[in-house]
């Protein structure tokens, strides 16, 4: 990726609702070129613009990171992927197979889900941590 493309991408990383004219002004790249580059990022499937939320302020104070080890990975993957409380979900290597970052409105909802996961035959072990964001999505390319 060229330096100019990185400059445009980093502006979007910092504030994805930034107007194209503002990117052009900051980077010194013509607005028509910025438009083409942003369009190309989309076509390449390189970016998705998302607003990151403070879930606590929306009434979901519990955020939990759950590591799972599974005997039948596809079964557990499918079960987890359909959960509405899921925020981030990764297949990982090492002592566990999956990492799921989940959000809950109360303790009861969290415990119900944990019990459900523990009752699944394909789930061998679970490790859960409450998580609190310090900073998110700050890496610049």
């Amino acid at each position: 990726m060229k330096a100019k493309e990185r400059a445009v991408l980093n502006q979007l990383r910092r504030e994805s609702r930034i107007p194209l004219t503002a990117i052009a002004k900051v980077t010194g790249i013509p607005v028509s070129t910025v438009f083409k580059k942003v369009k190309r990022f989309h076509e390449q499937g390189l970016v998705r613009h998302a607003c990151l939320l403070d879930f606590d302020r929306l009434g979901f104070p519990l955020r939990v990171g759950v590591f799972l080890r599974a005997s039948k990975k596809s079964e557990v993957k499918k079960a987890l992927a359909s959960l509405p409380c899921l925020n981030n979900f990764y297949q990982v290597s090492g002592a566990y197979d999956f990492y799921a970052d989940m959000v809950f409105k109360d303790w009861h909802s969290y415990e119900s889900l944990l019990d459900k996961l523990k009752s699944m035959e394909a789930v061998q072990s679970i490790r859960a941590h409450f998580i609190q964001p310090v900073r998110q999505e700050v890496f610049e390319v």
Partner: peptide, 27 residues
């Protein structure tokens, strides 16, 4: 109002880093 009240903590472009040559992502 979402931004003033910090309900939206950040608007960020999520990048597929592997497409940019960053092959190792880890927790």
């Amino acid at each position: 109002a979402y931004q003033v009240n910090s309900i939206v903590s950040k608007n960020a472009s999520l990048v597929d880093f592997t497409k940019l040559g960053y092959q190792a992502k880890a927790l």
